[in-house]
Design a protein around this nucleic acid. Structure first.
Lengths: 203, 203
DNA sequence: ACACGAGTTGGCCATCTGGACAAGTCAAAT
DNA sequence: ATTTGACTTGTCCAGATGGCCAACTCGTGT
């Protein structure tokens, strides 16, 4: 059939059944980054959790770093709910979405939030990762700006406030609150978000 | 004689000249945690940067983890400007302080902010570290609550808003903004903080 | 039947890592 | 002067780690 078909990206040429192994590896890697932290992940541990021999890593990826980067970017691309945010017409809904994501992320087995922090930290050490992560967050913020602008046109938020400023604030609050909630499970996230709603309401 | 050289209080008995070596080690460890991430720090790298032989680590600390934990807690205890915050009578001043700390933290050689994130992530894996870090953040938030209450009595902030909620929000915004600024150096932090000031102003 | 080659598997190795420890240093106490 | 013990220093070791690669499997095209 086709041999030249799928590849063109990088790594060894991607064949047919190899896709399954690659995905097992990236899934396992994402979990382990979230659990152990980027620097403590070993290729052997990833292979073991994926249920494949450790030699498979060398075949499917150029090395450990490429495996880890592809793993977290794949996890984000698949999981970040841009559409959900864009569909929300009101900031109130967005704040609610943040709250439920924090709640969900506090479960022990939740990977995405923790993976996010590890990736951001690693991005400072890896040029390519930083660019890709930065583009993602920028897009996220852009969606929020659109939501804020819509609110301002509705008159729900004062038109004199910077939409970009609000978007940046809300984005930062989401991550900051999650971080602090990880540290202190008793932190009253919903009270903070309730306060945020009040502050954002028209004056 | 003593084998691991451990008293029951903590680490070896604290002598006189050993304090210098210990401090060289903790300083070097804090730097390396911030630069490489918690999981990639090695005792040898710490010793080398500290300019002491690598065996010194085993003598002065029970092991790598104790060295790292003591290093970051010492760095925080010495650097977190509780007094500065407590002295600020207005939230406006506090927001300004956050801004300048973010600006300062964005420099490559700035350790504290990066160390903070590494410590929070590690706190999820280390019970003792979590408790100590949580206590620190809680105290920080408590100071902010006092500031907010003072503002409310002055009438600068509506008395109907939850002071705890505002304190939690502001704390989270500080860390969240710093995190995003690390990822995207072009992020307009001051615009976001300006917007925050507007939102916090009396209505 | 046969060769081909993508994909798989497990073994190998140079290097690193954390921790242990014996021997050495030195100043204060005796 | 000698002893004592905190502190230092270099070495050693068992285990892990990342990457490499030769042998193997198996579906496909000839």
């Amino acid at each position: 059939m086709d041999k030249t078909g799928i590849s063109m990206t990088d790594t060894p040429r991607s064949g047919r059944s190899s896709e399954a192994t690659r995905e097992k590896l990236t899934r396992a890697a994402a979990e382990l980054i979230a659990e152990l932290g980027w620097g403590r992940v070993t290729t052997r541990a990833v292979a073991e959790r994926a249920g494949v021999p450790h030699g498979a890593v060398s075949y499917h990826f150029r090395g450990k770093q490429e495996l880890l980067i592809e793993s977290c970017l794949a996890a984000f691309a698949q999981a970040v709910p841009f559409e959900e945010y864009a569909a929300k017409a009101t900031l109130d809904d967005v704040v609610g979405l943040i709250g439920s994501e924090i709640d969900h992320g506090l479960h022990r087995d939740a990977v995405l939030g923790r993976l996010m922090f590890e990736a951001i930290r690693e991005a400072e050490r890896d040029e390519g990762l930083r660019e890709r992560m930065g583009a993602m967050v920028t897009e996220y913020r852009k969606v929020l700006v659109a939501v804020v602008r819509a609110e301002q046109e509705r008159g729900a938020i004062s038109a004199t406030i910077s939409a970009e400023g609000v978007a940046t604030l809300v984005t930062a609050i989401g991550d900051g609150l999650f971080l602090h909630a990880l540290l202190d499970p008793d932190l009253d996230v919903s009270e903070a978000l309730g306060t945020l709603r009040v502050l954002l309401a028209t004056r």
